[in-house]
Design a protein around this nucleic acid. Structure first.
Lengths: 237, 237
DNA sequence: GACGTCTTTGACGCAACCCTGACGCGGGGA
DNA sequence: TCCCCGCGTCAGGGTTGCGTCAAAGACGTC
């Protein structure tokens, strides 16, 4: 419900687990990998900071009881250059330590022993709130002749904005989101005009013509909006 | 120390406390107010959703045990239109309930009884990470004709302050924050008038006209507040 | 209780959009 | 070769959506 991300098989979430207890690490790694996370591990603070810089994890799970340095120092070390979500584990229930860790920049604090379900849920929550807004980065598709910005809902052609009607834009959006793939006319009709449509192919002809007229260099010999006779249409860069 | 925007007297953080236990609410309110938070309260889910829509809190503290509805429903109700951080309180230690709440969109989960220090630390953490990154720098947007200062909530035009009503300002703010991007009329209505609006496009027409009359050089040929027929509006520098 | 401001609501003219039908063209099958 | 289906193109008409104005309702202040 958050973002459909049609066609983009998002790279797996990368987790960095920092802990010096082999058993706990193993349990975490197994559970995380089973859920298709990409996992790195570090057994002490110094390594952790190095690995974090190298691998740029999407979320960090940090045990405060490390052999070489104080956990809070690790948090500060990370926060010096990164806003990656940090989920702290600790055997200590002391309120003081929680406050210290959280104020140093941790995002969450879980006391051992903990339920794996809960930890994973907290991890999902941390990842979820870290990502969504910025996914408008590569929401823009360029061709030689024009540029489509899906986030801003703008089409640029030779420095000038192209004015599209709602239906035209909707049609364009579906095609661009499925770039290089054939989109059947039924699917196109249902996505743009609604589920009760499916045979009114004349609509498609009219609006494809409009799109080509506004975007193609030579509308009668389209290079980007290709007709696949009897099947549908395809957008190509 | 994480304090935002040095030099800007940022408005106090607004907290919405949702709980039906008077004692707990009182304790929370006292502690929060002592730390200069702005506090609203609600003792059931329905009120909570209404107040949230009205007051736009910066963070929500939600007790799951409400008299009128399931806490998870409240979370979903909020998440339908807002990304405000939600901190859940609950007497139940069940792992299941934690997972449900977190996956519904909660940001953190604290089991009662809890230490006030810890709660406040978690609250600080939630608020801190909700703050956008580069907020301080470009809190002001300039055009050839006028300047909008988002932090000071002021609009300057030719050296003179422009007087805007609350609704006008709110509308302007949403548009400016999404500069160059198209903002759908539904989104606009929900962000300015609240989540229960979405089809009253006549409001938009009236208030866009007011904004243009006050800010555009030639209100009948707007250069900054662009109408995208059938879709929404766009602010351009 | 009267006033001023802000918000909501309704009515109207006008422009833009969406749908529709007609026509021409080209390729594949009979 | 002729026919037919699918596609591209064009132009007209019904409908929707937008801008504008004005007046009534809600709210707070003096």
């Amino acid at each position: 419900m958050v973002s459909p991300a049609a066609g983009s098989p998002r790279t797996p979430t990368r987790v960095l687990v920092i802990d010096d207890e082999p058993q706990l690490v193993r349990a975490l790694v197994i559970n995380l990998k089973a859920r298709a996370y990409d996992v790195d591990t570090a057994h002490d603070g110094a390594t952790a900071l190095r690995v974090a810089a190298d691998r740029r994890p999407d979320v960090v799970v940090l045990d405060l009881g490390l052999p070489d340095m104080d956990g809070v120092q690790v948090i500060k070390g990370l926060r010096g250059w990164s806003r990656v979500p940090i989920l702290v584990l600790s055997a200590r229930h002391s309120s003081d330590e929680k406050v210290q860790a959280l104020d140093a920049g941790a995002d969450d604090y879980v006391t051992k022993p903990f339920g794996m379900d809960e930890l994973l849920a907290r991890l999902r929550a941390a990842v979820r709130r870290a990502e969504p807004v910025g996914d408008e980065a590569d929401m823009t598709v360029e061709t030689e002749e024009f540029t489509v910005d899906l986030a801003a809902k703008k089409v640029d052609r030779g420095g000038r904005d192209v004015r599209l009607t709602p239906t035209e834009w909707h049609l364009l959006e579906v095609l661009v989101r499925n770039a290089d793939k054939l989109v059947g006319q039924r699917q196109l009709l249902q996505e743009v005009w609604g589920p009760s449509y499916g045979t009114e192919t004349n609509y498609l002809r009219v609006y494809m013509a409009q799109l080509r007229r506004k975007l193609e260099a030579d509308p009668s010999h389209p290079r980007h909006f290709i007709t696949e006779p009897g099947m549908g249409y395809r957008f190509e860069k």
